[in-house]
Amino acid sequence: MIEVLIVGVLVVACGLYWLGRLAPSVTRGLWRGTGRVLDVVHAPVPVRQAVAGRAGSTSAGGCGGCKGCGKDGGGCH
């Protein structure tokens, strides 16, 4: 049962990652909804902050290999 749970969480996490890349506006909506639920249930502040951060973040551009243009990480290739 635990195995199934771990596998389920991993698959959902990967699905969310790709949803975030392909349809960032949808994921931002999901995170905003999650944030509201967490506020209602008085979840720990760090968790709520993390979710709020995701709800407000913009998607990464480029091919996914770099850290985005204009940052210290090194632009696009």
Partner: peptide, 12 residues
């Protein structure tokens, strides 16, 4: 890319 794009797609 292997750690993100490829691993996540492999899992899916």
């Amino acid at each position: 890319r292997v750690g993100t794009i490829i691993v996540t797609l492999s899992v899916l």
